[in-house]
């Protein structure tokens, strides 16, 4: 599978809940590479890409924090205007819906983290498109 692991963490909107997550990761020298948050007035979902997702998941669960892992695509594109559009378009023209996406920059390039509704269909489309899929880094 040409996907990467994403860690999703359930956080209540209370003072200190985010700090608890960050401290736990820091103590085990787990690096955070990308972050996105979806939030309501009651809670948020913190989505992380870290240097060791499985270790991070175990660590957080051990600390009484709800966390789980799921598959997302990481698409590396040039930071020009057309590339972003091309990446999104190759999915949507095949009827694949994007549930959410976020980005981070890596070595002067842009990485799109994309969660889709049809994982296997998306994999075929993306592989055929010639877009660069990141399967892990370092």
């Amino acid at each position: 599978m040409n996907t990467i692991k994403q860690l999703s963490i359930f956080l209540e909107n209370r003072l200190g809940t985010l700090q608890k997550v960050l401290e736990a990761l820091q103590q085990q020298n787990i690096e955070i590479q990308a972050v996105s948050v979806a939030d309501t007035s009651d809670y948020g979902i913190l989505r992380l890409i870290t240097s060791d997702q499985f270790k991070a998941e175990q660590l957080l669960k051990h600390n009484g924090i709800l966390a789980n892992i799921n598959e997302v695509f990481a698409i590396k594109i040039d930071s020009n205007t057309g590339a972003f559009s091309k990446a999104v378009n190759c999915l949507t023209e095949k009827g694949i819906e994007i549930k959410y996406l976020y980005t981070f920059s890596l070595q002067n390039k842009l990485v799109l983290i994309v969660r889709v509704d049809k994982l296997e269909a998306a994999e075929a489309v993306l592989t055929a498109s010639g877009l660069e899929l990141v399967k892990g880094w370092e």
Binding site: S8, F10, T40, I45, R47, N68, N70, R115
Partner: peptide
């Protein structure tokens, strides 16, 4: 109390 975390925001709502 939720049993598990999820990345799916709509599912929680």
């Amino acid at each position: 109390e939720l049993a598990n975390a999820t990345d799916d925001f709509a599912a929680l709502q």
